[in-house]
Design a protein around this nucleic acid. Structure first.
Length: 234
DNA sequence: GCGACAG
DNA sequence: ATCTTGTCGC
């Protein structure tokens, strides 16, 4: 199976699973981060219950001062239902559409979802990494699979996330006294590097700054589209 | 068969 | 993810 087969996105869950197994072999779990890491992107997707549109945003920030370098968003129709383990088939089309509009190329991409901490080692972050050929990190707010002891409650404390006897990620506390994040390499990234990058992008909030901004950006785009229905002029 | 289950 | 108001706490 080739990437081209994804163009239609008209797959059955069974076909999607077969494709994941094939693509998982292409994922690189060694760090390919540049020495001078400067521009980190965050991606997020937003949708509304009674609507059939997905909105995605990509925000690139400068790691030195968290200043926004570039921000874009896109909107397309939903083409796939939510199925745990098949999230990329639902969200990747709109995410790729947003990246198509991006003019700059980030050094790394933080994704709202899992990387290789996935039943077939191909979470949304890994799948996106393959498409983009860029280092990606999966940064999920809850667990999809794998086991771990409870991590410490202080910022920076972490425990390994183990799946089938393999460490596939890090359960990382990003703020004192809050629920941890499930951080795993997406593509061109290793387990320790993924956790360090997330920590480097996280300040006074639970989620890393690039993802927070993308989340905000995608929501604003969705609400603008919503209001345009009632007042298309303006 | 039952429970788990990113967003 | 989204539906939703106020509310308890640092």
């Amino acid at each position: 199976m080739e990437f081209a087969e994804l163009h239609g996105w008209c797959m059955t869950p069974r076909q999607a699973i077969a494709l994941q197994k094939a693509l998982a072999h292409r994922v690189c779990t060694e760090s390919r981060l540049p020495q001078n890491l400067r521009h980190v992107a965050g991606v997020d997707v937003s949708f509304r219950r009674g609507d059939s549109l997905f909105h995605a945003a990509v925000v690139v920030v400068d790691l030195a001062d968290m200043a926004c370098v570039e921000a874009v968003c896109a909107a397309i129709e939903i083409r796939f239902p939510y199925v745990p383990g098949l999230l990329s088939f639902r969200e990747l089309p709109v995410v790729l559409e947003a990246f198509r509009k991006l003019r700059s190329t980030p050094d790394a991409v933080l994704v709202d979802g899992q990387g290789i901490a996935h039943p077939r080692r191909l979470g949304l972050a890994s799948h996106l990494g393959l498409w983009l050929g860029l280092p990606t990190v999966g940064c999920a707010k809850s667990r999809l699979c794998g086991e771990h002891p409870p991590p410490g409650r202080r910022r920076g404390e972490r425990v390994p996330l183990v799946l089938d006897g393999t460490v596939v990620g890090t359960v990382l506390t990003t703020r004192d006294g809050i629920r941890p994040l499930y951080v795993s390499p997406g593509h061109m990234m290793d387990v320790p590097g993924a956790a360090e990058l997330v920590l480097a992008c996280t300040g006074r909030y639970r989620l890393p700054e690039p993802i927070r901004r993308a989340h905000q950006c995608a929501n604003e785009a969705r609400q603008r589209a919503r209001s345009d229905i009632n007042s298309p002029f303006h």
